[in-house]
Amino acid sequence: MPVWKLAAAFVAVAVLLVGCGRDDPEAALLAAVESLQESIENKDTSGLMDLIHDEFSANRELDRDWARRTAALMFLSHRNVGVIALNRRSWLDPTYPDKGYSEAQVALTGAEGWLPQRLGHYDVRLEWWLTDGDWKLARLDWE
C-alpha cells in the first residue's frame, strides 16, 4: 500500500480549513482538520495519531496501526511534504451531530529538497466522529 494514499487522505482533510472560532461543532471540526494538516506538515506522528480514532478504518480494511506505520514511513522517506487541495469541503451530518465529513481532490508531493520527487493525485473522503468533545478521524476512503 503506497504511503502516498494515507498522506493524501490526511492532508485532504487538513486543507479544508476556514477561519472559525471553536464555539460550535463545525468550527471544532475545522480546527481538527487544521491540526491534522499541521501534524503532517511537521511530520509529527504523535500529533497525527492523537487525531485518529481508536476504531479507525481506511478503505474498510486498514486499521489505526497501519496509519501509524504508514505515516512514520512517509515522514522518514521525505524531508518535505507538499499539499495542493482542489474542490474541498467539510460539513456536519444533519442527522447525527457527532459525525462530520470532509472531501477533497488532493495533489501530494514529496521531496528531499525544494523540487518534488514524487507526485500523487487522489479523491478522498474522511469521516470524523466527535468523541469526548474532540473530533477524531474514524474513516478514510480514497480513489
Results as ranks from 00 to 15, higher is better:
residue 128 W to I: 01
residue 33 V to N: 13
residue 55 E to W: 11
residue 45 T to A: 15
residue 79 R to E: 08
residue 54 D to E: 15
residue 114 W to E: 15
residue 115 L to T: 09
residue 85 A to K: 09
residue 40 I to K: 03
residue 50 D to Y: 12
residue 136 K to E: 00
residue 130 L to A: 03
residue 6 L to G: 04
residue 73 L to W: 08
residue 99 K to G: 04
residue 96 Y to N: 15
residue 50 D to N: 13
residue 116 P to I: 04
residue 51 L to G: 06
residue 103 E to T: 14
residue 24 D to Y: 03
residue 80 N to G: 01
residue 73 L to D: 06
residue 43 K to L: 12
residue 43 K to R: 15
residue 67 A to L: 02
residue 58 A to Y: 12
residue 52 I to K: 01
residue 66 W to S: 05
residue 81 V to N: 00
residue 41 E to S: 11
residue 68 R to E: 04
residue 140 L to P: 00
residue 77 S to H: 02
residue 28 A to Q: 15
residue 113 G to Y: 11
residue 53 H to K: 07
residue 137 L to T: 01
residue 120 G to Q: 09
residue 41 E to D: 08
residue 133 G to F: 08
residue 63 D to H: 09
residue 6 L to C: 04
residue 88 R to P: 02
residue 43 K to F: 14
residue 56 F to G: 03
residue 56 F to L: 09
residue 105 Q to D: 10
residue 1 M to A: 10
residue 139 R to Y: 10
residue 82 G to R: 01
residue 56 F to P: 04
residue 79 R to K: 05
residue 140 L to D: 03
residue 62 L to S: 07
residue 92 L to R: 08
residue 94 P to L: 08
residue 117 Q to W: 10
residue 30 L to P: 01
residue 11 V to N: 07
residue 8 A to M: 02
residue 119 L to M: 13
residue 124 V to D: 00
residue 118 R to V: 14
residue 53 H to D: 15
residue 111 A to P: 00
residue 12 A to C: 12
residue 139 R to D: 09
residue 89 R to A: 13
residue 105 Q to M: 12
residue 139 R to S: 10
residue 63 D to T: 04
residue 106 V to F: 05
residue 31 A to H: 12
residue 113 G to E: 11
residue 3 V to Y: 09
residue 47 G to F: 12
residue 7 A to T: 13
residue 24 D to A: 09
residue 10 F to E: 01
